[in-house]
């Protein structure tokens, strides 16, 4: 898979490193020459292009024509929006993701159909969830915040402990995707027994998260 990252700040740099170590073909576009050179020196297997990522010519230099994913992670939201729109609409890249620096801009990206990741929002959500939901964590919000992957830790007091999957009545629009037991991933079937200590990974619509929590972990 070919991934093109625009923006060589801390996020872009770490992402490029992680992806190239993970075996992905990775390219990175960075505006500032000094930073671009530094990244090029550090990351052998990443194609680094020095230039403005909002310039279609630079994106072509970085191989956007064969990119399956474009990630725009500059510090300017307006740039990230334009990069993603260029990638999707002009170059036909199948998957584009934008970093949103100011959470107030998230709604704009969503309404214009661009998937976003906002570290501010994620941290805020994590803290909120720590505070209110307890044992259930939203791992990832997908499809512009409509779908989320959540993790719930089963304990002895959980209503689902020592029950089989088929005995559990899940709320609508949610499914149990897998169970992690002793660091082993299991795919649940109807007769799988849930045990205290299990970690359940479930998919649900955002609005069903609370109902799902109640089903799995009981009322607070």
């Amino acid at each position: 898979m070919y991934v093109l990252i625009v923006g060589g700040g801390k996020v872009g740099d770490s992402l490029a490193k992680a992806l190239s170590i993970g075996g992905y073909d990775t390219a990175l576009v960075e505006k500032e020459e000094r930073i671009a050179e530094k990244i090029a020196e550090e990351l052998d297997h990443v194609l680094v292009v020095n230039g403005d990522g909002c310039d279609p010519g630079r994106l072509e230099d970085a191989g956007i024509a064969r990119a399956q994913v474009v990630v725009a992670v500059t510090g300017d939201d307006e740039d990230n929006l334009i990069i993603c729109q260029l990638a999707r609409d002009t170059f036909g890249v199948p998957r584009v993701i934008a970093r949103v620096n100011n959470p107030r801009n998230e709604i704009t990206f969503q309404k214009l159909g661009i998937d976003t990741v906002s570290s501010t929002t994620i941290i805020t959500k994590l803290i909120e969830e720590e505070a209110t939901i307890g044992d259930i964590f939203t791992l990832l919000a997908l499809k512009r915040g409509k779908l989320s992957i959540v993790e719930a830790n089963v304990n002895a007091k959980s209503p689902v402990a020592n029950k089989t999957i088929k005995e559990i009545k899940l709320p609508e629009d949610s499914i149990l995707a897998s169970i992690v037991r002793d660091n082993q991933v299991m795919f649940p079937k109807g007769d799988t027994l849930l045990l205290p200590g299990d970690s359940i990974i479930a998919l649900s619509k955002i609005e069903q998260e609370n109902a799902l929590r109640e089903t799995l972990l009981g009322k607070e």
């Binding site: 300017d76 939201d77 307006e78 740039d79 929006l81 334009i82 704009t108 309404k111 214009l112």
Partner: peptide, 16 residues
Amino acid sequence: SGDNSNIMASQIAKKI
């Protein structure tokens, strides 16, 4: 003076 700011603001006005 910023093209990208102009484009983003205009898209909000027009499309949203």
